[in-house]
């Protein structure tokens, strides 16, 4: 399959090249975010980016380059696996981070969870006390 640079073929090549470069830039953006954001939870936002949009663009560029229809379902399944797993791991890490106080309170403009957490902790402490006798 020699690249004859005429018409549609060339455009598909250009489009996939753009996708690849933008997808790679998403990874770079995540790295910049990891280095520059102040606390764990802000860094997590940066980390989800190459895993969702970056992978989408790169898989799309594979699909464009292969030029056969049967790769698209495969790529879609790969991307959907990613979509299903990324939020779960982000939630687990984020929850652990919040509970172990890995965030800078002074950077939060409002925190509507703190009161709830404290109430639950107080209730748990009371129940522990009564349970012990």
């Amino acid at each position: 399959m020699s690249p004859d640079s005429t018409g549609l073929d060339a455009w598909v090549d250009v489009l996939s090249a753009v996708f690849m470069i933008v997808g790679a830039t998403m990874s770079l953006g995540a790295a910049i975010g990891l280095l520059r954001f102040p606390d764990l939870l802000s860094r997590m936002h940066a980390a989800t980016k190459p895993q969702v949009l970056g992978l989408f663009l790169l898989l799309a560029s594979i699909g464009l380059q292969m030029r056969t229809w049967w790769v698209w379902p495969v790529l879609l399944v790969a991307w959907i696996f990613q979509l299903l797993t990324v939020p779960v791991s982000a939630h687990m890490v984020g929850r652990a981070g919040y509970r172990t106080k890995h965030l800078h309170r002074e950077l939060l403009t409002s925190d509507e969870l703190e009161a709830v957490v404290q109430k639950a902790a107080a209730k748990a402490a009371r129940e522990d006390g009564s349970g012990d006798g």
Binding site: S27, L58, G97
Partner: peptide
């Protein structure tokens, strides 16, 4: 947790490189 997160990103970068 920061290290785990960064490792996750490193894996994503590796996957992206394989895709390219």
């Amino acid at each position: 947790l920061d290290r785990v997160l960064a490792t996750d990103v490193l894996l994503a970068i590796l996957g992206g490189a394989l895709c390219v």
